[in-house]
Design a protein around this nucleic acid. Sequence first.
DNA 1: ATCGGAGCCTGTGTGC
DNA 2: TGCACACAGGCTCCGA
Length: 270
Amino acid sequence: MPELPEVETTVSGLRSVLQGATLTRVEPRRADLRFPIPVDLRQRMTGATVTGLSRRAKYGLIETDRGDMMIFHLGMSGRWRIDPAEIGAHDHLLLETGSGHLLSLNDPRRFGSLDLVRSDAWQGYAPFTRMGPEPLGPDFDAAYLAKVLDGKATSIKAALLDQRIVAGLGNIYVCEALNMAGIAPTRAAGRISKPRLGLLVEAIRTVLSAAIVAGGSTLRDYARPDGELGYFSNQWRVYGREGQICPCGGTVQRRVDGGRSTFHCPKCQK
DNA sequence: ATCGGAGCCTGTGTGC
DNA sequence: TGCACACAGGCTCCGA
């Protein structure tokens, strides 16, 4: 899916049109994505004013003056389109604002989700209850990682993809951060020294921040809400670059585990 | 308890 | 051109 930087970019784009806007039309166009869409979403959101937009891990949060919070997840192929030229089969939710903007939540593969909770209870939303800290937040540091990874036999790559450990990383940024930190993706998570975990934390922060600044990465089915493309894919060190040269001079290799591609450089990642 | 793998969907690119 | 197949950013459940 769009990972953390893409969701951050999406929320920023949505904020420019939705902050303070009144929703004059709220139209779910199917009953479910990955999960059922609340049947009362249209009724509760129509006529409401958007008071705030934010992000938790890979989820976008849209609050209204009625005390409701709409929570969306983009899955693998989800994106928001602002004032799209035409509405197609994969536009699953339409929002119209008082100022005349039309927004569409578009998700061909429907791995995304759309939900509605009370704002004061959002932290109790099931996906959030067991989620780890934000990688860009103050609670994510080497000491924390050392504690939660202690004794873990699973690979560091699998551990970083586990949202209970740290929330918001996906395949692309895990590959990138491990390369930047010089850590092999197959290394046992519990067998990395604390100084190296410190390097890893910094690498994760650096790669996520750079991606947010660049507006997210571009993949076949991802675009920013305003339709522009993100440019971070130009900065990938290893992801999608099998056979090409790593910044260290080594050759990027691709392997598949669990049906998922891993890109790494055997020369500088140990 | 922990781990690897399958499955959910659709679209696109590749090779025959 | 047509077709089959591999592959894609996430997440959850299942069985070993």
